[in-house]
């Protein structure tokens, strides 16, 4: 069975923060190319996000996979909702859907993203 304690922590995190990225490494020092790619997209869009480093938290590393029914990391959450992993985030960024999603959900992006 899944551990409800870690699920509670995840739920709290994605409730308290509009945009959360579960990743390997930190936004400043990503330790995986796929995590780095999502950080790059988010920075380019100009959205503030919380990075959760799963490498320093084995419980969350396994828990987040069960939580989202998604076997890999990174995982992006917007307003408590699972958006996708690296491929989906990149695809949505390229089509402009990511930007629309953030806007529709009322998440603030910086002016730098306008270009």
């Amino acid at each position: 069975m899944s551990d409800p304690v870690v699920f509670d922590r995840i739920r709290q995190d994605i409730k308290d923060n509009d945009v959360v990225l579960y990743m390997k490494g930190t936004p400043v020092f990503p330790q995986c190319g796929f995590s780095a790619a999502v950080v790059q997209v988010l920075s380019h869009v100009g959205v503030k996000f919380k990075g959760v480093n799963v490498l320093t938290d084995p419980e969350v590393r396994e828990g987040i996979k069960a939580f989202a029914n998604w076997p890999t990391i990174p995982q992006l959450y917007v307003k408590g909702e699972f958006v996708g992993g690296c491929d989906i985030v990149r695809e949505m960024f390229e089509t402009g859907e990511l930007q629309s999603l953030l806007k529709d959900k009322g998440v603030q992006v910086t002016a730098a993203a306008a270009q």
Partner: peptide, 27 residues
Amino acid sequence: SRVDRSRRVHEALADELKGPVHALALS
């Protein structure tokens, strides 16, 4: 949806993902 497309592929390849496959990029 995008997420559900990927989930179906993950399901079909559950054994590979549990075993040798570390990363799976999907389009």
